[in-house]
Computed example of a mutant assay.
Amino acid sequence: MRLRAMAKINLGLDVIKKRDDGYHEVRMIMQTIRMYDQIDLAGSDRPGIQVKTNLPYLPSNENNLVYKAAKLLMDEFHIEKGLDIRLRKVIPVAAGLGGGSSDAAAVMVGVNRMFHLNLSLEELADRGKTIGADVPYCIMRGTALAEGIGEILTQLPSLPPCHILVAKPGINVSTKNVYKSLRADEIQNHPDIDGIIDAIRGSSLMGVTARMANVLEEVTVRDYPVIDEIKQLMMERGALSAMMSGSGPSVFGIFDDRRKAGHAYRQLQDMNLVKQIFLTKPFAPGGR
């Protein structure tokens, strides 16, 4: 079985407060994009879970989220048959694009199908939140409002057609450290999440881009000003808006013109500021 684990961006990211359990209460607009890792699943007569990846520095044991995702379901349903997982990473690692969570989500969907567990997406999502806060969204995919710690989801209409340029500088960012450094009670300017939702429902791309904001930028950009440089370069080259995704360091720009997006892609590709760059589009659910 072959599956696509799709990347995500955040069209808006707000932190409401830090909870007593140490997690942060958030309101985020999540959007799946057409950038994906490839996962191949195969049953095996050899018991246990075997993981192979195309990146030598990724773990192939229980420290990899795909292993945890498979083990979660196989233990619960007492599956004795073995499972071989081949993971081909394309989504940049530690980049704010949800690659690890999406990989785990795809494996859960695949194991559910392969072993005929007959779990609904809602049932999978409920189990997925024990692996990571973004896993339930990555199971649902599309355009959604995420609340709580990210696990309370409300499906939204699809984002209007557009072109999305994603650029990752040659740095990695720890989500845990970003949230640790964030002073949630001192946030002055909160994104207009409800306004973004209204713009999506009204099919107004300009309405979405005019309200895009991410409170985590204040933390990450302070340590890595290159993020702000890339944002400005995208805006100067025709992006309706540009923003850091998640905890960073990836930056995305939204374009309503394919030629402008392609021109920006080629120009940023030649700059030392960017290590990886992708030109893609929004993704709407309709099959893995």
Score class of each variant (00 low, 15 high):
I139K: 08
P136S: 00
L205S: 05
P157D: 09
V135W: 01
P225E: 11
Q155V: 14
V166R: 01
N177P: 11
D192T: 05
A167I: 07
G170S: 15
C138F: 02
I171R: 11
K176W: 05
P169S: 10
H190E: 04
Y224F: 14
S181T: 13
R141C: 12
G150L: 03
N172E: 14
R183G: 08
R222W: 14
E122K: 14
I187C: 02
E123M: 11
M206F: 12
G132R: 00
R211F: 10
T175S: 15
Y224M: 04
R201L: 08
L182G: 07
K176V: 13
A213K: 15
E186A: 09
G150R: 02
V173I: 11
R183F: 12
G170A: 09
T220A: 09
D134E: 12
L153N: 09
D192E: 02
L182A: 00
Q188R: 13
I152V: 03
C138H: 00
P225H: 01
S174N: 11
L119W: 12
Y137V: 06
A144L: 00
T143G: 01
V219R: 12
R201V: 14
T175A: 10
A213F: 13
A184Q: 09
P191I: 07
G170H: 06
V215D: 09
I149Q: 11
Y137E: 07
I196L: 07
P157T: 08
I171C: 02
V219N: 13
I197V: 11
G132Y: 03
M206K: 15
M140F: 03
L159T: 10
R127Q: 02
A167Y: 06
D134Q: 09
I139S: 00
K129D: 10
A167M: 10
L159H: 04
S158L: 10
P161L: 07
A213Q: 14
Y137M: 03
L159D: 01
L216D: 07
K168I: 08
L121F: 14
V208G: 05
E122P: 08
D223S: 13
D126M: 13
S181L: 02
K180Q: 12
D134H: 14
V135Q: 04
E218K: 15
V226Q: 04
G202T: 14
M140W: 06
K168T: 08
A125R: 09
S204V: 10
H190I: 04
T154V: 03
K176P: 06
N189F: 09
A133D: 13
L153P: 06
I196Q: 03
D192G: 03
C138L: 00
I139Y: 06
V135C: 06
K168F: 08
D185S: 13
L145V: 08
Q188H: 06
G142F: 01
P225K: 11
D198H: 15
L156K: 04
P136G: 00
E217D: 12
V135G: 02
P160H: 00
I197Q: 03
H163R: 05
D192M: 01
G170L: 04
A184I: 02
L153Y: 01
E123G: 09
G128C: 06
S181P: 10
P225S: 10
M206E: 15
G148T: 01
G132A: 07
D126P: 14
I171T: 12
M140P: 07
G132T: 06
